[in-house]
């Protein structure tokens, strides 16, 4: 199953970054597919990006809300929030585990042999702060003399934007290099920090600073597809604790907001068939696993 997940991640990465004409055009894709919302964090200024980044779009819409309202345009970001809300209701943070290109990059870096470190749980609240402050409040509230805000998260934090868009664009368009300053240096340091941290800890960006992951985390209890724990079968052996890339103690907290449904606990750890994948309450039968009885689920 892990191999399948890797292929799905690769496929989704190519799907969101499928425009490979940029070496010739030296610019980004500008076709109609960019009206489609990317499920994962994928900068829309990446030369190969075929979809829009929901976090980037929300910030852009909120930062220009005053102008829009003055022109009777009610661009509150409803279509963007609606799109990621539907995805969140269906999959929740399963998207982080299966469809996010930046999550995939972090997973690959974590495979580099080194001493590994845990991430303190308290840092996981950081991503909610970034979602509320940097994506919503600051772009909306901090405005210049003309009433225009800024995309705070994209501008000051997002390492995915630096890696997928900033560096490629600087390589492709030499005239942009003259504009590189402290702002880019700040983002470059943040990117290097997270990429370096990914070698030593599992998915540090997803767990501490990703606002999209924070949004999907809100759906952990109500998403359609999620893992289910059969408490009658669980022996509390804690094997699921050891394999989780997000350090979730699944048998203690089956609806944990950090669970990315990578299925490692179900396939690699649990020998007692206590963990099943379910869709809307109906468990899926996976090869080699027997379904628990309906009464146990209830």
């Amino acid at each position: 199953m892990e191999t399948v997940r890797k292929w799905v991640q690769l496929f989704m990465g190519f799907l969101m970054n499928g425009s490979w004409s940029f070496p010739f055009t030296r610019s980004i894709y500008q076709g109609p597919l960019k009206v489609i919302c990317a499920p994962g964090l994928n900068c829309y200024s990446c030369p190969a990006a075929t979809t829009y980044c929901p976090m980037g779009s929300i910030q852009q819409l909120l930062s220009g809300l005053r102008f829009a309202l003055e022109n009777s345009q009610f661009y509150f970001g409803l279509s963007v929030v609606g799109a990621i809300g539907v995805l969140g209701g269906l999959f929740g943070r399963m998207i982080c585990g299966w469809a996010c290109p930046f999550g995939f990059i972090q997973e690959l870096l974590y495979k580099i042999p080194s001493k590994k470190f845990r991430i303190p749980r308290i840092l996981s609240y950081g991503k909610f702060m970034f979602l509320i402050m940097f994506v919503i409040v600051l772009p909306l509230v901090v405005v210049d003399d003309f009433g225009a805000g800024q995309p705070w998260y994209c501008k000051f934090v997002c390492p995915a934007g630096t890696l997928e868009a900033g560096i490629p664009m600087l390589l492709m368009q030499p005239n942009l290099r003259a504009t590189v300053g402290l702002l880019f240096f700040n983002k470059f340091v943040i990117m290097i920090t997270f990429l370096g941290w990914s070698v030593f800890s599992s998915r540090p960006f997803c767990r501490t600073a990703c606002p999209l992951g924070a949004f999907y985390a809100l759906f952990s209890k109500v998403r359609l597809i999620k893992l289910h724990l059969d408490e009658a079968k669980c022996t509390n052996c804690k094997a699921c604790h050891l394999v989780c890339p997000m350090e979730v103690k699944f048998n203690e907290s089956p609806d944990d907001y950090e669970c990315i449904s990578c299925l490692a606990c179900m396939n690699k750890a649990c020998k007692f068939d206590a963990i099943t994948l379910e869709i809307g309450g109906i468990p899926l039968e996976t090869p080699g696993k027997r379904l628990p009885s309906p009464s146990k689920i209830a």
């Binding site: 980004i28 900068c43 980037g56 779009s57």
Partner: peptide
């Protein structure tokens, strides 16, 4: 959101290189 014509605005933003977005 679609009824207010928001996707057109999103597309307009997404097809331009956002310099501040990339730092």
């Amino acid at each position: 959101g679609n009824a207010t014509g928001e996707p057109a605005r999103v597309l307009e933003q997404a097809i331009r290189v956002c310099l501040s977005c990339i730092g």
